[in-house]
Computed example of a mutant assay.
Amino acid sequence: MDDYIDDIIKQVDLSNPRSLNESVYQGFKKSIIDGIIPVGERLNEKELSRRLNISRTPVREATKHLIEDKLVEYIPKRGVIVKKISKDDVIEIYKLRKNLDSLAAIEAMKHMTASDYQEFYKILDDTEKLWLNDKIDETIQMFKVFNEKVYLKSEMPRLKAIISELREYLKRFRIISLQDPERCKRALFEHRKMIILMEKGQKENLVELIHKHLNFSEKHIIIALENQMKGLKQPHVKS
């Protein structure tokens, strides 16, 4: 743990006005999601509290919350260990995302104006230009802009917060490369089709497309996850 404990400490903002317990919990949680604490690593409460210069109580409370979040697990004779990502984790998160993303898009349709749709088409045109110029990182960033705008237009702040939380957990799937140009091309096509369906008010077709869009991503992640366990390279997933 000594190799990366300094990086963990950087994630714990003890100057934050929220409670010490919450600050430690959020810092540890971010460290796990961002991959700073490796899978299978034991959380040493004594060492963490010593290095943070705090009592073991907030560290113990943070650990308790992380167990509830299913990010860590207690193993007898080993202690609290960072959990591996399982196929069930992927399935659960995507099941939630399919339903929540569908709800966000349907609600957004109720509030969007012609000007909003033009803004979406502009985002998609800019994204396509980036993709055509092989700027994959920037293309992926524009996908995030697209999704955030849909959530915003749904005018459901609690829904947006829930989806944002799920998207944080998806960061744990760092084994999955998002750099595949063909995946970007497919996502761009489907995003454009989503906006067309929203503009036409075709709810059923929209929900079907969103589920298809996320099913592909889920399938890709599960296969890559299974191959990682076998020590294989990530395959190209066909639709």
Rank of each mutant, 00 (worst) to 15 (best):
N227L: 05
Y169C: 00
L206H: 05
H213D: 08
Y74W: 10
L43P: 00
V12A: 06
H191T: 05
K122H: 11
M194H: 06
Q118D: 13
K171Y: 03
I175C: 04
E204P: 00
R172T: 07
F189R: 13
I221F: 02
H211L: 01
D34M: 08
I162Q: 05
E119N: 12
K153T: 01
S217F: 08
M142W: 06
K110F: 09
I37T: 00
S115T: 15
S102H: 04
A187N: 08
F146V: 08
K98M: 13
D125V: 09
N21M: 00
K64C: 00
Y94G: 03
R78T: 04
P58K: 08
Y74E: 09
N147L: 14
D125K: 14
K212S: 13
E92G: 01
Y117E: 06
I175V: 08
E168M: 12
F120W: 05
F120A: 03
K153L: 14
Q141S: 15
F189K: 15
I175R: 07
D101L: 10
S217R: 08
L66Y: 03
V12H: 01
H213W: 01
R183C: 03
E22A: 13
K46A: 14
L232S: 07
Y74C: 01
D7C: 04
Y4I: 14
K200Q: 14
L206I: 02
K29P: 01
K87P: 00
F189E: 14
T127V: 04
N44C: 06
K87V: 15
S15F: 12
K160F: 04
V12R: 00
L152R: 11
R158M: 15
E138D: 14
D134S: 14
L166D: 06
D7R: 13
R50H: 12
P17S: 11
D69F: 05
K230G: 01
F216A: 13
I163T: 03
L197A: 09
A104C: 02
K233D: 12
R172E: 05
H111W: 12
Y4D: 11
F189V: 12
L209N: 03
N53H: 12
E168G: 10
D6K: 15
L132D: 11
D89S: 02
K160Y: 08
H191N: 14
S49P: 02
K193E: 11
Q234K: 09
L103Q: 09
Q228G: 15
D6E: 11
I106H: 00
I9L: 08
Q234Y: 07
K203Y: 07
D2T: 13
E226T: 03
Y169R: 11
E190Q: 12
R97W: 00
V237K: 03
S217M: 10
Q228A: 06
I176D: 09
E107V: 02
K122Q: 13
I221D: 09
L225K: 04
